Amino acid sequence: MNELAAILLAGGRGSRMGGVQKPLLEVGGRTLLAAAVTAAHEAGCDPIIAVGAPVVTTEGPIAPVIWVREDPPFGGPAAAILAALPLISASRTLVLACDLPRVGAVVPLLRTAPAEADGACLVDESGRRQPLAGLYRTDALRAAGAAMPEHGRGASVRALLEGLQVTEVPASDDIAADIDTWDDLNEARRRNP
C-alpha cells in the first residue's frame, strides 16, 4: 500500500473569473493542473485523483491521473473530496486546489508538519487557513465525511475538517496564494514569469 495519495480539486465553476476553467490557466509556462499533477507525482502520490470534468492539457501526461466527479457536479469541495476517497487506500491524502500557482513549494512545506495530528494545512501571513492546500490522514477524512449529510453536497472543506485536529503550517503569502480573480492571475504571472 502506498503511503500517500492526492486529490486535486479541478471542478469549480470559476464564477469569479467568468466561468473560466482555472486548471487550464497558465502560470510560468504551464497550466495550473500540470503544476498540481507534477507536485503530487514528485511527492510520490499514487493514485493521483482529479475531481471535476476531465480536461486535456497540451503538456501531455506528466503522471497517470484518475478523473472522478462528485454527484451532482459542482457539489462543492467537501463533496469533491468525498467522491475521491473511495479510490484511496494510502494512509495520507494530499488535497490540493488546482488554482495554486506555487504548488511545487506547497507540498514540501506540508510534509514538514508533525504526523501526530489528523492533518496539516497552510496558513498565510494574515492567519487565514488554506484547507485546500493540505495533507490529511485518510481515515480522519473518511470519518469526518461519514458524519456529513448528503455526502458533503454544498459543504465547505472547513465544515468537513471542523472536528479534526489540523496543524497550521505557516507559509508566505506568495506560497499560500491561490487564484480566484483575474487580478490574482496577473499577480501570479508577474511573480512567476
Rank of each mutant, 00 (worst) to 15 (best):
P170I: 10
M17T: 06
A5T: 07
A188R: 10
A171C: 09
V169D: 03
L96S: 02
P149M: 00
G29K: 05
L94A: 04
G19V: 11
V56W: 13
P54L: 10
L87P: 07
A80N: 10
A10Y: 02
A144T: 09
P108Q: 09
G104P: 06
V95Y: 01
C45L: 05
Y136C: 09
A133T: 01
W182N: 08
A120E: 10
Q165W: 04
L109R: 04
S172M: 01
T138L: 04
R69Y: 07
P114I: 09
A43P: 02
R111Y: 01
F74M: 14
F74C: 14
A188F: 06
N186M: 13
L141C: 07
D184G: 13
V95E: 02
V37K: 01
P54S: 14
D184C: 12
A34H: 00
C121N: 06
S126Y: 06
A34S: 11
L82R: 01
P77V: 09
V95L: 14
I175H: 00
Y136N: 08
G28M: 07
A6T: 07
F74W: 15
G145E: 02
R13W: 12
L135G: 05
N2D: 14
L160T: 03
A39C: 01
S126F: 11
Q21H: 13
V166F: 09
A40H: 03
S172P: 00
N192K: 12
E162Y: 11
V157L: 09
T112S: 14
G119D: 10
G29L: 04
P101K: 07
A143E: 08
P131M: 03
G28I: 08
I66T: 13
G152S: 05
S172I: 02
G44S: 05
A35V: 00
L82Q: 01
P101A: 08
I7A: 09
E187K: 14
E116A: 15
H151P: 04
S89Y: 12
A80R: 07
P23Y: 12
G14Q: 11
R129M: 06
T58Q: 13
A90T: 03
A115S: 13
K22A: 14
V37I: 14
N186V: 12
D173F: 02
R102D: 13
P54N: 09
P108Y: 04
N186Q: 14
D46V: 13
A43D: 03
A177W: 02
R189W: 12
G11N: 01
V166A: 06
C121D: 05
L4N: 03
A115M: 10
C121A: 12
H151T: 13
D124W: 02
R189F: 04
N192C: 11
A84V: 11
A53V: 12
E59M: 03
I179K: 00
Y136G: 10
A155C: 14
N186L: 15
N2I: 07
D71P: 00
D174P: 00
E125P: 01
R16P: 08
L96M: 11
A159Y: 06
A35K: 11
T138N: 10
L4D: 01
L87I: 05
G145A: 08
L4Q: 05
R190N: 10
L87C: 06
D118R: 09
I175M: 01
V103N: 03
V27S: 12
F74L: 15
P193V: 04
D71A: 14
A34D: 13
A117K: 07
L110F: 02
D184T: 15
G145M: 05
A147R: 14
L33I: 05
L185I: 10
A36R: 00
R111S: 09
W67F: 12
A90L: 06
E125Y: 01
